[in-house]
Design a binder for these strands. Sequence first.
DNA 1: GCATTACCCTGAAAGC
DNA 2: TGCTTTCAGGGTAATG
Length: 274
Amino acid sequence: MPELPEVENVARTLRPRLVGTRVLGVEASGLPLRRPVDLARLRAACKNARVTSVRRVGKYLLLELSSEKVVLAHLGMSGRLVFAASSEPRRPHTHALFALEGGLDLRYVDPRRFGVLRVYDLAQLEASPELSVLGVDPLEDGFSADYLHEALAGTRRELKGFLLDQGCIAGLGNIYACEAMFLAGVAPRRRTNRLSRNRAVDLHRAIRSVLETGIANRGTSFSDYVDADGEAGSNQDALWVYGREGEPCRTCKSLIKRVVQGARSTFYCPRCQR
DNA sequence: GCATTACCCTGAAAGC
DNA sequence: TGCTTTCAGGGTAATG
């Protein structure tokens, strides 16, 4: 389940082999992802264009091209963007394939098809329906303790729902939201407007910390996630609460609890988080 | 404005 | 063993 750290690692592993490389052609399975894939538009944007940069915004990957177009990709729940030799057989659920010069492919594989693959004009990217609604990226300078405190104070939602809202903070998903709440010592059902400035400072620090740790550990690989080189991450071994229902808290030994909020599981320590 | 629910989808795990 | 059911969840839309 790719969240910000996993997408960041995909971007980092794509860059060395992708930037400066020419795309020779594009193929697609014809099956829709979360939205249909417009193969004609992809081909027109990519054919004989060079990749000029690979960026990440929230959970979105952006491949900028010399054609002044941008390929926007979201990996959904089970999506992978991986390199493969063009001679290598295609794995099942390969929904897009970018043939690169040098005999290499970049392949988009997504069994559950919750992902997104679209093309935008570079000049219109920021106004796209995907990016225009995003809040601040938590690794960017704009994500300060002040920003977070103000955003928390401006609503009275439950904290967990706030953290998952990409319009507030772009890039947190279920795993890192749970981990950040644990590190900050805040209960998932706490109303955001009831959090003091000190608690906001703690939460800000915790969000940065769990994301940076996730990146350093090359992502959390529970089932599907691998980077562009096909390598799994190790952050699943460093989690405090996520997926640990009924197991002892690593800090106080209380049993980790699970509740459902907005149809998503939330894991927390009832003693450490208040 | 916000919470809840359904939906999209497939593979893994659980249940029988 | 083998079949069926349940569950997982990111984002969106509909509903209350």
